[in-house]
């Protein structure tokens, strides 16, 4: 042992391997294992295809058909089962051969239960977000914040943050919080940056977005 220790070069290498092992292991844990542990995957109650409902599809519905503003300016958000039933009214005459539609009839239309959608953009209760100020007044397109949902055939996997209980889409799907597109992350800083960029710095006063 003493003889080994006297070999100068090997001694250095030996030690740094431990360092490297630690470094790499930590990087693996931090970048790959941690996200797996942090998020649990959940599936939406129904596999809803925006693509087959949207303007380009056979159904040819405008976005506003389901996601509209009420008279008082509040946003309807995700439509309730009543809206679905306007078209999917009769289980005897389904509109498609899709098994998801069968599920819609048996599980929700039949039992008059609302569909417990998992909302990717759900913000904490202390956040106030008026869609009308952004969509109608500032003329910002939906996809700027939500991404291009309208053409999706299958909804993205919903990943629930085990700690915060919010969707992964708030922090962003990139664990480093790296943002390529405007819709990649939905944190407070994103709101603030956008306000700043658009010269609406006054809208960064606390009460504008907090309630």
């Amino acid at each position: 042992m003493e003889a080994d220790a006297k070999k100068p070069g090997r001694l250095k290498m030996d030690g740094w391997i431990f360092f490297l092992v630690g470094l790499i292991a930590a990087l693996i844990v931090g970048w790959m294992v941690f996200p797996l542990l942090l998020y649990s995957e959940k599936s939406q109650p129904l596999i809803f295809s925006h693509a087959s409902h949207g303007p380009e599809s056979d159904a040819g519905l405008d976005c506003e058909e389901c996601h509209f503003f009420y008279e008082d300016g509040t946003f309807s958000g995700i439509p309730g089962i009543k809206k679905c039933m306007e078209c999917h009214e009769d289980p005897e005459s389904p509109l498609s051969e899709n098994s998801e539609e069968v599920k819609l009839f048996t599980d929700y239309v039949g039992t008059k239960k609302e569909i417990p959608w998992l909302v990717y953009a759900r913000q904490p209760d202390c956040v106030y977000f008026p869609h009308i100020a952004h969509v109608k007044m500032a003329e910002i397109e939906c996809k700027v914040c939500h991404g291009d949902f309208a053409t999706r055939k299958v909804p993205p996997t919903y990943k629930l943050n085990r700690l915060t209980r919010y969707s992964i889409d708030i922090w962003g799907r990139n664990i480093a919080g790296y943002k390529k597109n405007t819709w990649d992350t939905m944190k407070m800083d994103d709101c603030a940056d956008c306000h700043k960029r658009k010269g609406k710095e006054n809208n960064n006063a606390c009460f504008v977005c907090h309630k």
């Binding site: 931090g30 700690l163 922090w171």
Partner: peptide
């Protein structure tokens, strides 16, 4: 050395920053 490497690796990963943010929420 292993610990130092681990620490360095952790700091180079998003884990601590993300964890702080999540814990705050």
């Amino acid at each position: 050395k292993f610990v130092a490497g681990g620490l360095g690796g952790t700091l180079l990963s998003p884990l601590p920053w993300k964890l702080i943010d999540d814990i705050a929420i």
